[in-house]
């Protein structure tokens, strides 16, 4: 149940349902981004309002976390935020399972955030000070600091995965029992509300982890 069914093989690489849905979501977002970004003018008209709303939402979030360095990480964090939100919300469609309910996608995103966070920490503080931070305040605490750093991406991925898969399983079980009207509010709750909250939390934590290593 947790492993999404394999649709077809490209050479030896299995392409699963999650991957196809994830690619579809990314494609739709790219087209949407291109369409929204066309012929912008000074006084925003209809679609530009929405685009500016989203852009400013992520800007405020990042300025709060990263201060003056936000511009360098804006694209990365905003893309993750929009993608995870779209991936969570797409689960509400009948028959479509949210790609984030497959551990591979949240784990990949969390690992990306982990790499960016550590590399920006090294770039900002220099390798020496970055490594010395692991033996702050006493060398005996090195394992603890190390585990603290490594648990972050794991909990980051598991938080998104656990919430989404919990929703999928609950809805799967409930829809076996009560066929028609009952799963709809549940779908609404888990995929819409929890999906949006988890996407916000995932983005917030991504910005927080990147900001944390740089200070």
């Amino acid at each position: 149940m947790l492993i999404s069914p394999v649709l077809f093989y490209v050479g030896t690489v299995p392409i699963s349902v999650t991957l196809v849905v994830s690619m579809a979501v990314s494609f739709v977002l790219v087209v949407l981004g291109w369409w929204l970004g066309r012929n912008l003018n000074e006084i925003p008209t209809g679609k530009q309002h929405v685009a500016e709303l989203v852009v400013l939402f992520f800007k405020d979030l990042l300025v709060g976390m990263l201060g003056d360095r936000w511009r360098g990480y804006y694209a990365f964090v905003a893309t993750i935020g929009i993608y995870v939100a779209a991936a969570n919300l797409v689960g509400v469609l009948p028959g479509v399972v949210a790609p984030t309910s497959d551990l591979s996608i949240p784990a990949a995103l969390a690992f990306m955030v982990f790499l960016v966070a550590q590399s920006s920490g090294i770039r900002a503080k220099g390798l020496g000070r970055y490594l010395r931070e692991f033996i702050e305040p006493m060398p005996i605490l090195f394992p603890l600091n190390l585990i603290g750093t490594l648990v972050k991406p794991v909990s980051h991925a598991f938080r998104l995965f656990g919430n989404m898969v919990g929703g999928v399983i609950l809805i799967g079980v409930i829809s076996q029992i009560a066929r028609f009207a009952v799963p709809v509010p549940l779908l609404g709750w888990f995929n819409l509300f929890m999906g949006a909250v988890q996407a916000f939390v995932f983005t917030l934590l991504a910005a927080a982890y990147i900001g944390e290593t740089m200070h």
């Binding site: 909990s155 938080r159 919430n163 909250v197 916000f200 934590l205």
Partner: peptide, 12 residues
């Protein structure tokens, strides 16, 4: 929301 998310990870 940030605090809730971090508190929730034990439940997850």
């Amino acid at each position: 929301i940030l605090g809730d998310a971090i508190a929730e990870s034990t439940g997850i």
